[in-house]
Amino acid sequence: MTSLKVNGETYQVAATPDMPLLWVLRDHLKLTGTKFGCGEGLCGACTVLIDGAAERSCSITLAEVGERQVTTIEGIPANHPVKQAWLAEEVSQCGYCQPGQVVAAVALLKQNRLPSDEQINQAMSGNLCRCGTYQRIRKAIHAASSKMAKGGIIHE
């Protein structure tokens, strides 16, 4: 049994320490919001926050996560400005990449409240979307950013 902190809870999981976090979340904890897209760190569908920073859960093992706090899409509150902006801008199509996109955007805005287009490119270009929702992703990030700036909202 290995202990793992996810979305504010501590779980004891019966997974081997070399199992990628992605499969611990999906197969052991049934937190299926985090998606498998490539398994090689190439698509971002599996993005989660580890101590607040975006990480590819397919490319980090349970042992490597250790005591750190994991936040998945399920752990980001529904009223988070990023989730709200995603709905307002109607970003989702098939929706499969969107948990990873949302988590990556949350991480970006945590670090940088007013990202430029260039900074959005840098932070988000590892998150593929085969449905091509990129234009709306960009718009939603700007919208969430200005809402957070105006409201002085701090979401951790």
């Binding site: 399920e74 989730k83 109607e90 929706g95 969107q98 949302v102």
Partner: peptide, 11 residues
């Protein structure tokens, strides 16, 4: 607004 968006954004 799409009916499927809330569930997709929630994960």
């Amino acid at each position: 607004h799409r009916l499927d968006s809330p569930a997709k954004v929630a994960g």
